[in-house]
Simulated assay, not measured.
Amino acid sequence: MSLPENYARERRVATLAVQRATIYTQKVFHSLVKGTVSKDDRSPVTIGDFGAQALVIAAIRHNFPDDEVAAEEESSLLRSNPELRDQVWKLVSQVCLPDAEEDSLLGGPLKDENAMLDAIDAGKSTGGNRGRIWALDPIDGTLGFLRGGQYAISLGLIQDGEVVVGVLGCPNLPVDKTARVINSESDREGQNDDGLGAIYSAVAGHGASIRPLARRRGPEEEPIQMREPLSLSVASFCEGVEAAHSSHSQQKAIAERLGIVAPPVRLDSAAKYAVIARGLADIYLRLPRNLSYEENFWDHAAGYLIVKEAGGEVTDAMGRRVDFGKGRTLAANKGIVAAPAGIHGKVLEAVRAVWGS
């Protein structure tokens, strides 16, 4: 896949940075979350978010020191809590890529705790429609992460308000598109974990691709294309697990209006974008229950581009283009409708009829 030089490097750095952060979150899950009885303690999530953010931002600063980063976390909690800070640093300091040359491209290991804290705090960009801004969600899908289901590390480069590079690290999505999508740790029974873990990436105008998370050195990318269902009756859609995040009842009414009979694929995080881009489902609906709610732009930048480059269309629920130049939220938009380009218009008509009313 031939890329213009300026974005070829951005995609490579972003892909490796997301891979390294994904390896880190897996360490957090297996050492602090897996096998716990109670999920009330949010410290594993905190440790996962902080460390992943530090690793990704450090790689961006090393390669593109003039770029801005907008990310979800800041380090004040770690600075005031030495015990928590030490937990994060202990795991961060152990993470590296399998290939030493690729790890070196990211600047190698963070040198100390202060470097970790400074990297976390470099994610304070307010966004906007001028310049180069990386939008990062270090762990999108908190509950999916805790239950051993779907979560994602989401990283997108926005230049002058347009998403030009997108990378999603999905450690619990299968590489094989015929495999079952897990939703929890119990779903893993009878499934080979070796087939789990994928990184999706896209560059504007140059398509989307998938590669195994566990890849060693060498090209193993495969182009991806959204499937066009033969009819809407055989299409499937995906939505969030939590009804508090989007309106399941309205989404059910939309499916019925379209004649869709298959039950929805429910999973957490921006992995939903990857699922439809890969052809594991066809339609992604996110209809807010509260019209005052504004989506964080880091939750959608990478997935938006991956779906677009895989042959899909993404708008808000009223058919407006998704505007990533309004700051740290999608302030000009309400909801998300993503589908193959050939059926997006029909899906949007049903959304307007049900949700618009």
Results as ranks from 00 to 15, higher is better:
residue 152 A to W: 05
residue 324 F to Y: 09
residue 270 A to I: 05
residue 212 P to W: 12
residue 128 G to R: 07
residue 355 W to I: 13
residue 75 S to N: 01
residue 23 I to G: 10
residue 281 A to P: 03
residue 167 V to L: 07
residue 308 K to F: 06
residue 279 G to K: 04
residue 225 Q to C: 00
residue 148 G to H: 03
residue 107 G to I: 04
residue 84 L to K: 02
residue 18 V to I: 08
residue 257 R to A: 03
residue 99 D to K: 00
residue 212 P to C: 10
residue 261 V to M: 12
residue 231 S to V: 11
residue 67 D to M: 08
residue 46 T to L: 15
residue 76 S to I: 14
residue 242 E to I: 08
residue 340 P to W: 06
residue 174 P to K: 08
residue 259 G to K: 03
residue 334 K to V: 15
residue 162 E to L: 11
residue 43 S to M: 09
residue 100 A to M: 15
residue 56 V to R: 03
residue 165 V to E: 14
residue 69 V to E: 03
residue 252 K to E: 10
residue 218 G to K: 13
residue 145 F to R: 02
residue 126 T to R: 14
residue 246 S to V: 03
residue 234 V to P: 09
residue 322 V to H: 11
residue 241 V to S: 11
residue 22 T to K: 00
residue 152 A to E: 06
residue 333 N to E: 10
residue 17 A to R: 02
residue 43 S to I: 13
residue 351 V to R: 01
residue 267 L to G: 02
residue 135 A to K: 02
residue 223 P to D: 09
residue 64 F to Q: 01
residue 189 E to M: 09
residue 12 R to H: 00
residue 60 I to T: 07
residue 79 R to L: 01
residue 282 D to H: 10
residue 233 S to A: 04
residue 118 D to Q: 14
residue 94 Q to A: 15
residue 46 T to V: 09
residue 313 E to L: 12
